[in-house]
Design a protein around this nucleic acid. Structure first.
Lengths: 220, 220
DNA sequence: TATCTCGTCCCCCGCGCGGGGGGACGGATG
DNA sequence: CATCCGTCCCCCCGCGCGGGGGACGAGATA
């Protein structure tokens, strides 16, 4: 049963990856057609609005102020049934969940094979939520633990704006007092924020918080 | 003056990037020819040995035990005039210097444009050491500071085996006492190592050390 | 031989950090 | 209305961390 090829818009700030995607997808011409491409979130938004593709495939890390995650949020907000599949270099569970909470229709890894990618995109178009095969197993285990009522740190990732800001300074290696100086706050206030961050990230010290932030790709 | 096209071997574990490179380079068919490709360092080594290309273009981060940096070291060790250009996603100075110390003929960033890439590869073949244009400025500043005799942390990156091990545990967020337990050492010994790490990395606390390690890609 | 680095371990000291408590205010949400 | 949450500030306290010093043996290098 030959249907129309899936209309796809790809978003990536790396020419390399963009070309790579197109080269890989060209091998599946009958099933996928790249109808548009963008190198930044700002360019992607109007493009998606006018082209209205079946699926948007975007890198989670776009240079510039707007990340792929933000782009996903905006696109879904503009059109709730918009299918956005995020492409990432990190096989990290927390990142995956951030993507899904942002309304993504899927989270795939960059070293996915062409045939698998096409299949996942088709599934995403049909309303399925796709997760990279190499991560599906771990995600299932986590879900099982969740249903069993176990504590799950990732669920508490809702850092407030202020807390994210403070976390940024933690990553920079600043002391509480130094952060207070930069933010024009009392040192005790900063300590409150830091404690809140530790609780939400389920860590016990700054070093672990920094490790978490950098691994999740929240900063840098 | 039309010369023979540059014979290139590309090494990257991401199908995406590999295809992207080939697609981009295909636009410069007369100047560059991809004569071989490999998806891992292990496969790349014999390939380079048999094909003996003008230039090897390899990702610094290859999955598996052997990184692109290691691959570079081995290739240069096997043939000292081997031209290996490393491709990285990180515009970090320290990483650049690691690459050059590993004997790389160049360090380019993945978001480089096709035309620039080809030019740089040609320069690398002719014996030049090429650095991504966006990093060249910063590198020059550092070099100037070096000549002025200023202290420079990057030069002291030679962590001993034990220190690297301890740094790994710092990234994991362990306390000095906990590290001592895992390594079967006294706490004071661990503190000595930690102090040495701080000196060499030019940081003042664990959080900054973790940030440094993760940003350099030393761990994870 | 002497010298050096590395790894191990010890002393002292000050202070920043992390954890516990509490409370005030404004805005959103019910 | 009452309730929650984010923001901000304060108290106390213990201990781990960071910085200084030095000692000793093993092994490599000159």
């Amino acid at each position: 049963m030959a249907t129309q090829p899936l209309r796809l818009v790809v978003v990536d700030d790396h020419e390399m990856v963009l070309e790579g995607l197109k080269a890989v997808l060209a091998r599946f011409r009958g099933r996928v057609r790249v109808v548009g491409e963008a190198v930044s979130a700002d360019l992607a938004e109007p493009l998606v609005a006018t082209l209205d593709p079946d699926v948007v495939l975007a890198d989670v890390r776009l240079r510039g102020s707007v990340s792929g995650l933000d782009l996903c949020r905006r696109l879904v907000e503009a059109k709730p049934d918009r299918r956005v599949v995020l492409l990432s270099a990190y096989d990290d569970e927390q990142y995956l969940y951030q993507a899904l909470r942002a309304g993504a229709a899927g989270y795939l890894l960059k070293w996915i094979e062409g045939a698998t990618l096409v299949g996942q995109l088709e599934s995403a178009m049909q309303g399925e939520t796709v997760v990279d095969p190499t991560m599906a197993g771990r995600a299932a285990v986590s879900a099982a633990r969740l249903q069993a009522g176990e504590f799950w740190p990732g669920a508490h990732l809702s850092l407030t704006q202020r807390e994210s800001e403070v976390l940024g300074y933690l990553v920079s290696g600043l002391s509480n007092r130094a952060i207070a100086g930069r933010l024009m706050l009392g040192e005790e206030t900063v300590k409150s924020h830091v404690r809140a961050i530790f609780r939400k990230l389920d860590v016990g010290d700054r070093a672990s918080a920094v490790a978490f932030a950098l691994r999740e790709g929240i900063f840098r």
